[in-house]
Amino acid sequence: MPGYKFVKSSYSGGNAGQECVEVARNIPRTVAVRDSKRPDGPVIVLGPTAWDAFRAGLVRSSD
């Protein structure tokens, strides 16, 4: 796995055991996403356009 530097999503709760998403944006033109409870588990890697579409879908679904 490249040198991703994951940070917890600002939408994730601060309590242990909650469902949390971590995102790494330190690699140019790449956004990596993983489950914070499975740091050695699968990583989804997206390009900027796919990431923007994913985020737009989340905003629409929360309206």
Score class of each variant (00 low, 15 high):
residue 23 V to P: 07
residue 20 C to W: 00
residue 23 V to N: 00
residue 42 P to M: 08
residue 45 V to S: 06
residue 36 S to P: 14
residue 38 R to M: 15
residue 13 G to D: 12
residue 45 V to C: 08
residue 9 S to P: 08
residue 18 Q to P: 04
residue 42 P to I: 06
residue 31 V to T: 14
residue 39 P to Q: 13
residue 21 V to W: 01
residue 16 A to E: 15
residue 22 E to S: 09
residue 34 R to T: 01
residue 24 A to E: 11
residue 33 V to H: 01
residue 39 P to H: 07
residue 30 T to W: 09
residue 46 L to P: 12
residue 40 D to K: 15
residue 11 Y to H: 15
residue 15 N to K: 10
residue 34 R to S: 01
residue 31 V to G: 06
residue 16 A to W: 07
residue 22 E to T: 05
residue 24 A to F: 10
residue 21 V to F: 05
residue 46 L to C: 11
residue 18 Q to S: 14
residue 44 I to Y: 06
residue 38 R to K: 15
residue 46 L to R: 13
residue 27 I to E: 09
residue 28 P to D: 13
residue 22 E to Y: 04
residue 28 P to Y: 00
residue 35 D to K: 03
residue 47 G to W: 03
residue 32 A to S: 09
residue 28 P to L: 01
residue 27 I to L: 13
residue 12 S to W: 05
residue 12 S to C: 10
residue 23 V to C: 02
residue 34 R to D: 00
residue 40 D to P: 04
residue 47 G to V: 02
residue 23 V to A: 03
residue 21 V to P: 00
residue 47 G to E: 08
residue 26 N to K: 09
residue 36 S to H: 01
residue 33 V to N: 08
residue 9 S to Y: 02
residue 47 G to N: 10
residue 40 D to M: 11
residue 14 G to F: 08
residue 42 P to N: 12
residue 18 Q to R: 14
residue 33 V to S: 07
residue 40 D to F: 11
residue 15 N to R: 10
residue 14 G to E: 09
residue 22 E to R: 04
residue 17 G to A: 12
residue 13 G to T: 08
residue 22 E to P: 05
residue 42 P to S: 12
residue 11 Y to P: 07
residue 35 D to G: 10
residue 12 S to K: 12
residue 25 R to M: 10
residue 19 E to I: 12
residue 25 R to T: 13
residue 13 G to A: 13
residue 33 V to G: 01
residue 35 D to T: 02
residue 28 P to T: 00
residue 26 N to M: 05
residue 41 G to H: 10
residue 37 K to C: 04
residue 22 E to G: 09
residue 25 R to D: 06
residue 32 A to W: 02
residue 12 S to Y: 03
residue 34 R to H: 06
residue 49 T to L: 02
residue 25 R to Y: 05
residue 29 R to P: 00
residue 14 G to R: 13
residue 42 P to G: 14
residue 14 G to P: 11
residue 27 I to Y: 09
residue 13 G to W: 07
residue 21 V to H: 00
residue 33 V to W: 02
residue 13 G to Y: 05
residue 31 V to K: 03
residue 17 G to D: 11
residue 45 V to H: 00
residue 20 C to D: 06
residue 20 C to P: 12
residue 19 E to Q: 09
residue 41 G to A: 08
residue 49 T to A: 14
residue 30 T to I: 12
residue 13 G to H: 13
residue 31 V to S: 03
residue 29 R to L: 00
residue 30 T to A: 13
residue 14 G to C: 08
residue 26 N to A: 07
residue 43 V to K: 03
residue 25 R to G: 06
residue 47 G to K: 13
residue 17 G to R: 12
residue 33 V to M: 11
residue 40 D to H: 11
residue 12 S to P: 05
residue 48 P to W: 11
residue 16 A to L: 11
residue 25 R to K: 13
residue 49 T to H: 13
residue 40 D to Y: 09
residue 25 R to P: 04
residue 35 D to C: 00
residue 15 N to E: 13
residue 25 R to L: 05
residue 29 R to Y: 07
residue 20 C to R: 02
residue 35 D to A: 04
residue 38 R to G: 02
